[in-house]
Design a protein around this nucleic acid. Structure first.
Lengths: 212, 212
DNA sequence: ACCGCTATTGGTCGCATGGCCAATTGCCGA
DNA sequence: TCGGCAATTGGCCATGCGACCAATAGCGGT
């Protein structure tokens, strides 16, 4: 059986339990949608009573927002690892190449769905909205940082790294906006629009960011 | 008082009533979101009992889907009036200029929200998804038609009208994806990205599609 | 003028949600 | 070892949802 015996309890340190709840909520949000992050659903995931989740998050909105941040933060670190101050082991070109490769894989589909989900839900949930805005800026800054580094060592050619980062993200978000409603006639022509956009924006030869 | 006396009824022809319900639902969806299209909310809008709406739409999903189609269909006709077969009174350049002008106005904000809303909700509602896909194709075809016409009379230069239309829509949808979460630092650089994208794609001089 | 069809009313039901709270019990420190 | 703090349980309530239905009354056709 998957559920623990009723009546038995596992008592944990508040900080640990809280983190555990956020992680479970992020899992649910990523796999099923942020609307499915309910006290009961998360409690079930952790094999715990709903009241406990409510105890740690008196306002459910907060849990949804923190779950979103947790999920996107982890995803960003997998996609674009934060670069050490000194010269890293990866060239900006390779990092960006890896980035677009991962972006195009089906592994990223649930992340696209999550962003779409969060951007819509932000209409109704102020707390979530703040977290989404923060993550949008974070992703943008991470890309800007990479562009700035690549421009410094003359691999990229770019006058305004921030504006370029924003435009690349528009291509990414615009393309992934159709994740739930794709018609082949429309998705085929834009399969690698984000990558080609980046190549143009950064003054790179065509396909130089394509998967080897 | 705004609500009619309880007990009095207004009996209408089924087709008329049905259309009236869809119109009211579209209004609610556009102003408050598709999730707010509930039997009760629409009934309230029409000053009618919830059961009546349920009678015309035994499955609520259908009402949401038809409301979305009604709203976007009307919006498209306002944005890009269908062109008569022969030479119309508007040049393709002027039509496209008007299109981007309206797109940039705040009147369009609720339409952006509606599309974002619908694309996310399509994850859970198959009936809505079908309608969204159909509208996406309709909008795309309408733009393609305009590009084809402009290319024919040498105003635009474009090798593949369909692919170009798709790419312009990516720019539009990508930009409007941030409608609920805009941070100035990110929205400022892309304020007229859709328009400049179209100018580039169609081989037009910069700002030739800008509002006069 | 009135009669019958049916559009409309005005409820009920079951279900899911968030929020709340007293009782219980696991676990750590004295 | 044992007492007490607090993490956890296990329930409760109000609200809003879609679905369903018998009873009613408006209105067109005879």
């Amino acid at each position: 059986m998957t559920s623990r015996d009723s009546g038995t309890r596992t008592r944990k340190a508040p900080a640990e339990r809280r983190h555990e709840i956020i992680r479970a909520a992020a899992q649910v949000g990523l796999a099923e949608g942020l609307e499915c992050i309910t006290l009961r659903r998360v409690a079930e995931e952790l094999d715990v009573q709903p009241g406990l989740v409510g105890h740690y998050f008196p306002a459910a909105d907060t849990l949804v927002a923190e779950a979103f941040t947790s999920a996107t933060m982890a995803e960003l670190d997998g996609l674009l690892p934060e670069r050490p101050d000194g010269p890293g082991h990866e060239t900006p070109l390779n990092t960006l190449r890896r980035f677009f490769t991962l972006l195009a894989s089906t592994e990223f589909d649930n992340v696209s769905r999550l962003w779409l989900n969060a951007r819509h839900l932000s209409r109704y949930r102020p707390v979530l909205r703040d977290h989404v805005i923060e993550q949008e800026l974070l992703w943008c800054r991470r890309i800007e940082q990479l562009i700035t580094e690549g421009t410094r060592i003359q691999v990229f050619h770019c006058a305004n790294p921030w504006a370029t980062a924003v435009r690349i993200l528009v291509a990414i978000d615009g393309t992934s906006a159709y994740i739930n409603t794709s018609a082949d006639a429309r998705t085929a022509p834009i399969a690698d629009l984000p990558r080609t956009t980046a190549e143009t924006e950064l003054g790179l030869p065509p396909d130089s960011l394509a998967t080897p």
